[in-house]
Design a protein around this nucleic acid. Structure first.
Length: 863
RNA sequence: GGGCGUUUAGCUCAGUCUGGUUAGAGCGCUUCCCUUACAAGGAAGAGGCCGGCGGUUCGAAUCCGUCAACGCCCACCA
């Protein structure tokens, strides 16, 4: 074995071995109960980021443990075509060569995107391998592959037939840069300071005016009415009259509508039905016609008169200037309001009347809410349920058509002759009603439409495949809170509607990985960290351990490279512990499972008892997805108890011929189980060390350890306390590495024959089993039942020792006083549980004993 | 306008759901030790009125109320 842990050396080796062994396939445990995770498919847009790394580290920890527990564990991998995101990326690439997608035409462009997908997808798959994630690649899926496309079409047509998908002219969010409609949740609202412009609309009969206020004066070109609240007395007289729309010289009515807020602005609203959702609703109720004055480029249309062709912002200033010139401009106030931006490109969204396809979501919501309320699906931690409920209850219809080229074509055809709309599972060549010519819908579906089907479409649905029957519904869905609305909620809705079962049972939610400055990692801020770079510099295992350690439930994860370095040092420590072990334990001597000693010696029994306790607690924490707690537990157990204590205590018996064999057996079993427990977190290094220690088979297929419970043996903890006391004594008196004599008074005969060797090795003392003739001039070590003394002559300076003792006495007195206060409190004695009272009594006794000892030391020093 | 999260050691964070040893970890800091697994290590330490105030309780970092600061999400008052 190399003297140092070099992750890069070993990590490249194991993945192919695992994959070829079939260990990633659930069939490796053919008799086990199925356990399924479907991966949140990464976008083929680019490369994996830290969010993926934490997400998949959690999934791999789950699936590897379940596999070791004998489940037929499936982790199904795949990727998402990410319609708008990927199309944008490829368009940007083309733009570098001065080419637009229109230059290429649809077919050639889509070919280009497929090429991008192939190379990007390969990169991502290799990244997943480099991180050691144990997905079953034989079942890899892509949202645009043939099977999933069939599922998408089946779902679309079924929902259409059920009346849950419809085509309609409604106000949608239009991105003038991406040139497509997007759904409500793809719009990011930001507070911006703008203006509230007041405009006076004169009555058509020339008698006065009504003043409206707007944040978007340019939309007045498309006004077809003015609305006031029906209860607004200020305007009671004017409802039903008409005003003359300035600049456009068009007569438009004043109407009364409940949707108007009396206390905002002037209480009178200009109504632009084609460019505002609220105005559109008012117009529908009041019978006002929409006039589209802004086009898909965000420029003024021909309907905008002399402003036609101007960009919306240019038009804004021109319209205001013209209004001023005409003397109808009122005040312009500063006004902070929220403005919608495209989540992909940050362009300001243009609300626009447009013919699009929609999902009527309300009928799908009820069962999806019930599944979470009734516990069929469970958010972990549960606080996300409230967000989920609130969001689901206020859902509006989902705009699913996109004016893009990359994605699932909408399976609709339109007849030129009879204007029929045909939605079909199979391609349509001619109109079934009139035989006339048809043309297919040009648009594609929102990428989240196919993602919503992911848990069952990947398993073969709509066919009744074996995989679907075996692995659906899935057990766990691990995801970040940022896509609960985009994805989790929609999977629940679609999954339940089409399979009558919630698609997953548990939904562990993790936070976002943040940069060291606490901000979200992003390329544009230049503060993002590439996980692959970290794998190269520190190794995949250290990165995984770091992310899991930081992944407290649902909280964001601030990331620092220092943490990865600390994890790498843990790997190094583990490496060296095993290096020590294999010097004594020969390969093949440690069984892959079982082999727990029947009648261990005290030190061995102690570490075995700790192992069984820790293993059980650790297992429970992982079962509850408490990765951060689980890592802390196993990390501290390994380092402080196994490495710092047990390995050191094993050294003496290993040199003792009579005791070596038993020690080796325990050493092997404990380290073997430690490797097993750590394997779901850090698979590479544990597999490598397994091959050195056990040598037979691969760890990935080993059984999860369940060590039997051992009682804590008497004496070991007493010895440890004595050793700690001696070390403290040495440190406090700056005694260096000097060997010290130690006199032990053992009236209770607690000291076992193996103590002297341990004391010599771990405390650098020469113990003698005899009480000192007088304790004067000796320091009493520890407070336990075994009394140990160090002769002080020539060792220490009383001048330095006395103040230290006095401080220790003061500290202990304070603690004792606190304990006594409780014990003398009759209410505490009455109401606290007996075990708490007993603890407090023990504390008081300990403090009293310590005080006695300290006082006697003080006397002996003569200060 | 609603809702949520955070506030604990010099720094970055656990612990709070389920109240009970002397509140933990990593990094940093101090002292000692090159002991044959590991100096990328070992040993021993220093450092905290657990954001403020009030309450419940025998007992509060933990439960309740309130205030403050920071952050996030949602929302059709133009």
């Amino acid at each position: 074995m190399k003297p140092t842990y070099e992750p890069q050396d070993i990590e490249s080796r194991w993945y192919p071995a695992w994959e070829q062994s079939g260990a990633f396939r659930p069939e490796i445990n053919p008799d086990g109960e199925p356990f399924t995770i479907v991966i949140p498919p990464p976008n083929v847009t680019g490369v994996l980021h830290m969010g993926h790394a934490i997400n998949m580290s959690m999934q791999d920890a789950i699936i590897r443990r379940k596999r070791m527990q004998g489940y037929r564990a499936l982790w199904l991998p795949g990727m998402d075509h990410a319609g708008i995101a990927t199309q944008n990326v490829v368009e940007r690439e083309l733009a570098k060569e001065g080419i637009s997608r229109h230059d290429l035409g649809r077919e050639k462009f889509v070919e280009q995107v497929w090429q991008w997908k192939e190379s990007s997808g390969r990169k991502i798959a290799n990244q997943i391998r480099a991180m050691g994630f144990s997905c079953d690649w034989s079942r890899e899926r892509f949202t645009l592959d043939e099977g999933l496309s069939r599922a998408v079409r089946e779902v679309f047509v079924t929902l259409y037939e059920e009346g849950l998908i419809y085509r309609g002219n409604r106000i949608i969010n239009w991105c003038p840069r991406c040139h497509t409609a997007i759904s409500d949740i793809e719009v990011e609202h930001e507070e911006e300071s703008g203006t509230l412009t007041h405009i006076r609309y004169p009555f058509s009969d020339g008698d006065g005016y009504i003043e409206v206020a707007t944040t978007r004066p340019e939309t007045m070109l498309g006004d077809t009415g003015v609305a006031v609240h029906p209860d607004d007395e200020r305007y009671a007289e004017v409802v039903g009259r008409t005003v003359r729309l300035p600049l456009m010289e068009r007569d438009i009515p004043v109407v009364a509508d409940d949707a108007v807020a009396m206390d905002f602005g002037t209480g009178a609203v200009k109504v632009t039905p084609a460019h505002d959702p609220l105005d559109f609703e008012i117009a529908e109720r009041q019978g006002l016609e929409p006039v589209q004055v802004i086009d898909t480029e965000a420029k003024i249309t021909a309907a905008g008169g002399r402003f036609a062709g101007m960009d919306r912002y240019h038009a804004r200033s021109e319209v205001v200037a013209a209004l001023r010139e005409d003397g109808v401009l009122g005040n312009i106030e500063e006004h902070v309001h929220s403005v919608g931006h495209c989540s992909r490109c940050k362009t300001v969204i243009e609300p626009m009347l447009s013919l699009q396809w929609f999902v009527r979501v309300q009928p799908l919501v009820g069962p999806a809410i019930a599944a979470v309320r009734d516990g069929e699906s469970r958010f972990v931690p549960p606080r996300w349920e409230n967000n989920y409920f609130h969001w689901m209850e206020n859902l509006r219809d989902w705009t699913i058509s996109r004016q893009l080229w990359w994605g699932h074509r909408i399976p609709a055809w339109y007849c030129d002759t009879c204007e029929d709309v045909i939605v079909s599972r199979v391609d349509v060549a001619s109109c079934p009603s009139c035989g006339g010519e048809v043309y297919g819908d040009e648009d594609v579906l929102d990428t989240w439409f196919s993602s919503a089907l992911w848990p069952f479409s990947t398993l073969g649905w709509p066919d009744e495949t074996d995989d679907l029957a075996t692995y659906y519904p899935t057990n766990v869905l691990v995801t970040g809170y940022d896509i609960i609305y985009f994805w989790v909620a929609r999977m629940l809705k679609m999954g339940i509607h089409f399979t009558d079962q919630a698609p997953f049972a548990a939904i562990p939610i993790h936070g976002l990985v943040r940069a060291e400055d606490g901000r979200k990692m992003s390329k544009s801020l230049g503060n993002s960290v590439d996980p692959l770079e970290l794998v190269e510099n520190y190794g995949a295992d250290p990165l995984r351990l770091t992310l899991l350690q930081a992944a407290a439930q649902g909280q964001d994860v601030p990331f620092s490279e220092e943490w990865v370095d600390a994890s790498r040092r843990f790997g190094n420590k583990l490496w060296n512990a095993l290096r020590f072990a294999v010097e004594h334990v020969t390969i093949g001597a440690v069984p892959a499972d079982g082999g727990y000693p029947q009648d261990p010696a005290p030190a061995e029994q102690w570490i075995l008892s700790r192992l069984s306790t820790v293993a059980a607690t650790y297992d429970g924490l992982l079962e509850e997805y408490k990765f951060s707690d689980a890592v802390a537990l196993i990390y501290n157990f390994a380092w402080s108890e196994v490495f710092d204590w047990y390995l050191e205590m094993a050294k003496a018996p290993l040199r003792n011929e009579a005791r070596a064999a038993a020690t080796k057996a325990t050493l092997g079993v404990v380290l073997r189980d430690l490797l097993k427990l750590l394997h779901p977190l850090i698979p590479f290094v544990t597999e490598e060390l397994w091959s050195e220690l056990v040598g037979e088979g691969m760890l990935i297929t080993a059984a999860w350890p369940q060590p039997p419970a051992y009682p804590i043996p008497p004496g070991v903890e007493t010895l440890q306390e004595l050793i700690v006391g001696l070390r403290r004594f040495r440190a406090e008196h700056n005694l260096g590495a000097k060997r010290l004599p130690l006199l032990i008074d053992d009236p209770q005969h607690l000291v076992a024959d193996w103590w002297p060797a341990q004391l010599e090795a771990l405390a650098r003392v020469e113990p003698t089993l005899e009480a000192p003739a007088t304790t004067t001039g000796h320091a009493r070590i520890g407070a336990g039942p075994v009394q140990a003394f160090i002769p002080l002559a020539g060792l220490i300076d009383p001048e330095a020792e006395c103040p230290r003792l006095r401080k220790a006495i003061a500290d202990t007195e304070a603690l004792l006083a606190a304990a006594h206060a409780k014990l003398h409190n009759s209410k505490f004695m009455e109401r606290a549980p007996a075990e708490v009272v007993a603890k407090e009594q023990n504390k008081a006794a300990d403090f009293t004993a310590t005080l006695e000892r300290l006082h006697s030391q003080l006397e002996q020093l003569g200060c």
